[in-house]
Design a protein around this nucleic acid. Structure first.
Length: 256
DNA sequence: GACCAGGCATGAGT
DNA sequence: CACTCATGCCTGGT
C-alpha cells in the first residue's frame, strides 16, 4: 500500500493546484473570486466551483484527479445509469486473447454521437445515442475540463471479481489532442498504471507502478502522452462487494 | 487467502 | 512480408 499516491482530501492545496477552465483559470482556494462572466452563466457556474485537482506525474505519465460530484449527486447519477444503460450481450461481449475467446469479465456499452463507432481489441462497436444522464455527465466534464467529447465507453464491474487487464487506450481513431476523461461511480476501486518498459521478465527499466483509488464521483484525466508509455488495469479485489460504473469519455476522429 | 507477475504459443494488425 | 503484441485465464510465488 505504501506506493499508492496520497489522495487524502485533507491535502493542503497550493498555488500550483490550478485548473484551466473553458473560459479562464480558476483558483483552487475556497472563497473564490466570482467574475461577472461566471455570474451571468448559471449553467457554467454549476460546475465552475473550484475543483481541487491533484496532478499525478511520472516519466511519460500525466494524470489529473478530482472529485467532480458530491456523494449525494453521485448516488443519484449511479441510480439513473443503472436504469438507462443497456449493455452489450452475445458476440459483442466477447474478446479474443491468445487465440481463445472469452466472455469479458465485466459489462460494457458504447454511447456517442450518431453513426460513431469505435474499434478496440479487434471488435467494432457502434455507439448508441446518448442517454439523458450520460449527456449530463458529459457536459459536467466538459465544463470542468474545457474538452468536448463525442463518445463514451461504459464499463460496469458488478463487484471486485469483475476487472480489466492491463492495456493502453492507444487506438488510432482517438483524437491525440483530447485527454480521456474517466468518471467513477459506485464502489471505489484500485487503478494501477505500469510503464511499458517496466513490464515482463526482461524489462529494461525499473519504474515503480502508480496506484490510485478511484472514488465515487471522481474524475481522472489521462493526458498525453500517458497512453503511449503506460498500461493501466483495474485488478481483482475480492473484498469489494458492490458495483462500480466507469465512464471513459473520448473524442473520436471523424471520417476514419 | 489475497495478491502479483509471468506464461501463454494463436492470429490480427502494421 | 516479417515482425509485434495481445482489455483473457491460469499457475506458482510471497
Amino acid at each position: 500500500m505504501e506506493n499508492f499516491v496520497n489522495q487524502s482530501p485533507s491535502k493542503r492545496l497550493c498555488i500550483s493546484d490550478v485548473l484551466t477552465s473553458p473560459r479562464k483559470k480558476i483558483k483552487v482556494e475556497y472563497g473564490e473570486e466570482m467574475t461577472e462572466e461566471e455570474d451571468e452563466d448559471a449553467v457554467l457556474a454549476e460546475f465552475s466551483h473550484p475543483v481541487p485537482w491533484q496532478k499525478i506525474e511520472a516519466e511519460g505519465l500525466d494524470l489529473d484527479y478530482a472529485l467532480l460530484f458530491s456523494k449525494e449527486e453521485a448516488d443519484h447519477l449511479f441510480k439513473k445509469l443503472e436504469e438507462e444503460v443497456m449493455y452489450s450481450t452475445g458476440e459483442e461481449a466477447k474478446v479474443q486473447v491468445f487465440g481463445k475467446v472469452y466472455n469479458i469479465p465485466r459489462r460494457q456499452a458504447t454511447y456517442g454521437d450518431a453513426g460513431l463507432s469505435y474499434t478496440y481489441s479487434g471488435m467494432k462497436h457502434l455507439a448508441c445515442t446518448w442517454t439523458p444522464t450520460l449527456e449530463y455527465i458529459r457536459d459536467a466534464v466538459t465544463k470542468t475540463t474545457g474538452h468536448t467529447f463525442n463518445f463514451v465507453l461504459v464499463n460496469r464491474y458488478k463487484d471486485g471479481q469483475d476487472h480489466i487487464g492491463e492495456h493502453r487506450d492507444d487506438e488510432k481513431e482517438l483524437d491525440p489532442l483530447c485527454p480521456i476523461a474517466s468518471v467513477s461511480l459506485g464502489a471505489a476501486r484500485d487503478f494501477v498504471c505500469r510503464h511499458r518498459d517496466a513490464r515482463g521478465k526482461q524489462s529494461c527499466r525499473q519504474i515503480e507502478p502508480v496506484k490510485l483509488k478511484l472514488a465515487h464521483g471522481s474524475l481522472l484525466l489521462m493526458n498525453q502522452p500517458t497512453n503511449t508509455f503506460w498500461y493501466h488495469s483495474l485488478p481483482v479485489r475480492k473484498k469489494v462487494l458492490l458495483p462500480r460504473i466507469n465512464l471513459t469519455f473520448r473524442r473520436i476522429l471523424l471520417n476514419k
